Simulated scan of single mutants.
Amino acid sequence: MTDSHDHTAHGLHAHAAEGAPANPVLAEIWRGDILECSHRGAVAVCNAAGELVAAWGHVERVHLPRSACKMIQALPLVDSGAADAAGLDDRHLALACASHGGAEIHTRLVADWLAGIGLDAGALGCGVMAPDDAEMRKALRAQGAEPTPLHHMCSGKHTGFLTLARHLGADRGEPDYLDPASPVQQGVRDALAEVSDEEPQGPAIDGCSAPNFGLTLKGMATAMARFADPAARLTGRRAEAASRLAAAMAAHPLLIGYKASSATLLTEASAGATATKSGAEGGFVAILPEKGLGVAVKVDDGGDRGAAAAMAAVLARLGLLDRESPAYRATAEAPIRNFRGTLCGHVCPGPALM
């Protein structure tokens, strides 16, 4: 593995230092024998001490992790005692970390969870989105029904926020728990700072209206390593919470995503050895308990399939994913078919990761 990273100053709008080399190509899209698209980006692999074990590209640029940091956003839910007070089990914790597909297994659990804390879908501040799950879309059409906030991929995370708000006595209405100054979001910010060893930047506002704080890719990989090996740097309730959340994600891959999602496929393929999570605009992270490492990927152009291919390639290099497995072939070597089903091309890892 090569180590190619910079040490420049950062802000949310930071770019490469003038004259610095471009990030390496992490994934390629081929159509026939012609290279159609290249996805450049960076990868950081860190241990719980915050040391870079391997790196490709500019891993100290600040980025927005988006949904890739949901397990960090869920830390205060668990270490505050709110999860136990609400009677939550591993399924709920996995859903709090999820970008789910809006299938019945997701919406039913969210609805029951909300009812358990005396709320309903109207309390969710995530907005409404159509479900990714094809069966749920078909069922809604058959019923002549519209999607609700329950179908939003972030409804589990928001239900976790609401559970924490109620536990803290901060439930003064739906908008409050999304306010960056609220006890809920200040708890999230403090958790981000502790697990990353960085001062979170921002916030910016995510697609689900929650605050999203900027970290370097190295900081994100460090955070994931501390979920992989909590006892190395975290203590007390926070260490226990990180361990519980990582285990819940690994145990319930269908709850953290959906059948065809890359995070679900890669987590399933590891048989509990890893927990992976994607984020919007080309972000992807992995928690590797067996190795005590964390991985963070960011594709410069925001291409999600490029990020998935890069993550699969890194996991294969680390010996955690078989290159002959269906999950690897569906992500790192994904076929491209046209509307007639004709095989037209394929995705593959870029030269830097081969």
Rank of each mutant, 00 (worst) to 15 (best):
Glu51His: 13
Leu109Trp: 01
Glu194Tyr: 01
Leu217Pro: 00
Ala309Ile: 01
Lys138Trp: 00
Phe213Trp: 15
Met249Leu: 10
Ala165Gly: 07
Ser99Phe: 09
Ala332Arg: 00
Lys157Ala: 14
Ala210Asn: 00
Lys298Ala: 13
Pro253Gly: 08
Pro289His: 09
Arg323Gly: 10
Arg237Gly: 05
Cys69Glu: 05
Ala83Asn: 04
Ala74Val: 04
Arg237Tyr: 00
Leu245Tyr: 05
Leu192Thr: 11
Asp84Asn: 10
Gly187Pro: 06
Leu265Asn: 08
His13Ala: 15
Met1Gln: 04
Cys344Ala: 12
Pro131Thr: 12
Gly282Tyr: 08
Pro289Ile: 08
Gly125His: 09
Ser182Met: 06
Gly144Phe: 10
Ala334Gln: 13
Ala210Cys: 04
Ala74Gly: 03
Arg91Phe: 07
Ala123Asp: 04
Ala9Lys: 06
Gly116Arg: 02
Gly202Ser: 09
Thr276Met: 03
Ala223Leu: 06
Ala98Thr: 09
Val62Gln: 01
His100Cys: 14
Val43Asn: 01
Ala103Phe: 07
Gly350Asp: 10
Asn23Gln: 05
His167Ile: 10
Ser278Thr: 13
His63Met: 15
Gly236Pro: 00
Ala44Gln: 11
Leu245Val: 05
Leu109Phe: 01
Ala68Cys: 12
Ser209Thr: 15
Ile336Trp: 03
Gly302Phe: 13
Thr163Gln: 04
Ala310Thr: 06
Glu240Cys: 05
Ala14Tyr: 00
Leu35Trp: 07
Leu315Val: 03
Ser262Leu: 02
Ala248Trp: 10
Leu64Thr: 14
Gly302Asp: 12
His13Lys: 11
Ala134Leu: 14
Met311Trp: 04
Gly32Lys: 10
Asp112Glu: 15
Ala231Asn: 01
Ala134Phe: 11
Ala316Gln: 08
Ala307Pro: 03
Leu109Asp: 03
Arg137Met: 12
Phe227Ile: 11
Val295Ser: 01
Thr159Gln: 05
Leu178Met: 12
Val78Gly: 05
Val295Tyr: 01
Cys69Lys: 00
His63Val: 15
Val347His: 08
Phe161Tyr: 13
Arg233Val: 13
Arg137Leu: 12
Thr163Pro: 00
Arg61Gly: 14
Ala225Lys: 01
